[in-house]
Design a protein around this nucleic acid. Sequence first.
DNA 1: TTCATCTAATTATCATATCTATCTGACTTT
DNA 2: AAAGTCAGATAGATATGATAATTAGATGAA
Lengths: 251, 251
Amino acid sequence: MNRKVSAITTDTFPSEMRTSLGRNLTYGMLDVIGRAIVIGEYDNVAFPTEAELARKHGVSRAVTREAVKMLTAKGLLSARPRQGTIVQPQSSWNLFDSDVLHWLLERKFSVELLRHFNQLRVAIEPEAAALAAMQATDAERAAIGAGLARMVAAEAGADNTLAADIAFHVAVLEGSRNPFYKQFRDMVASALATSIHFTNRIKGRSASIEDHRAVYDAILKRDSDGARCAMRRLIGDVLILIGEAEVTAKS
Amino acid sequence: MNRKVSAITTDTFPSEMRTSLGRNLTYGMLDVIGRAIVIGEYDNVAFPTEAELARKHGVSRAVTREAVKMLTAKGLLSARPRQGTIVQPQSSWNLFDSDVLHWLLERKFSVELLRHFNQLRVAIEPEAAALAAMQATDAERAAIGAGLARMVAAEAGADNTLAADIAFHVAVLEGSRNPFYKQFRDMVASALATSIHFTNRIKGRSASIEDHRAVYDAILKRDSDGARCAMRRLIGDVLILIGEAEVTAKS
DNA sequence: TTCATCTAATTATCATATCTATCTGACTTT
DNA sequence: AAAGTCAGATAGATATGATAATTAGATGAA
């Protein structure tokens, strides 16, 4: 094809830009190249040199280098003199980086990805609920309750269903009082955002609120085993739905 | 104090340098500044401007900017015109980034951190073992067996205990066939490397090999519940040890 | 073949200049 | 007063051109 790559300018892209912070040439280029890598645009093609990248996107080499450096920090690239810049295998990407997650979901969505997501959630969230039952402060327990209240309100149309769901699950993570668990904020939010389109279509979520309440009640009673089981049931249901959908898709 | 910061040169630091790839000025500066941030050197002090950083470390502004950009990509910094560069709260650091992990462990080690580590492992690894029991390929099962064999050899002094332990646990993660689980390679390796000094001192690990073998056997038999329980027992023991150690340390 | 050496390509670094966003404070307007 | 407008100062953002360092690959000798 050899289509011309449109030049990056501060005016062009900021609207559709999706990245952690800032809106300037460097972050714009980070976004464009990161997305291109994730969708596999360079899988069978050599990655361009610094100079080529700069020319193609109409920016200076300094900006190009900074964007490339950020992508190496996220594990997508590596650069060496003479060898050039090369795309790293997916196994070394920082999948928990929120930019990488967004690129993956935006352009590379698949039911398999959703299953991988939820296979992780079924490990993390029940344990987080168990920790929260033991260690959460009163304020953190209240936040979980508030999330549940929002879900009830959403049922009646007074709040956003997705936002309420995310608030609940994030509050549980926060209640674990473990910084590593809190890291899964973005991941859980993304998983919920993508799976809501999915699960809604397959099955009504009327039972969902009662399941969430079971988690909350167990946490309030400081019943860590109960919280773990209730949360596991909640996510296990989603996994089953996904499994069925996958089988259906194949036949 | 106002001590003079030694200039970064390609000759000075490569020996003690700890970072993902490359050994040049940019990566050296990344390492130096990253470590300084993690140990809290800038908690009560304003972070220097680009120009100051460059001058203090004896490198150009381009190198400084690239290092800063990498640190923003890892979530440690953010930069805005006029406001300057500022250290982000720890909640937005990418804790699963292997550089960040190393900085944390090297300079900011604490029993609490070790407990947080293992609270995460107790969520991840049992579920990974369960997945491996269901989905691992023959080659992946063999790799788990090989890890166990190395542990037995290490018992007899024919292999490195730590390396063998890591090999086993990493092989289980690989067997999960889920890219998100595989991301915990570095984390598990770090956790084992730091906890081995610890657990060894408290209690002999003679029973450890039998516990590992139980995991392996369950995976071979495709018994996912058995694998999950066996792995949970394995890490649960470590958590108990740490909990006791913390109580002892406080008294 | 095998090893050492050279060459060229590509990243790495530097220095400098200019541009742009943003804060501050003074001034003006209403 | 309260709100709007302008000027200066500051710090990051971008561009550019030159030079250094690294190393894959070609070349050539043993």
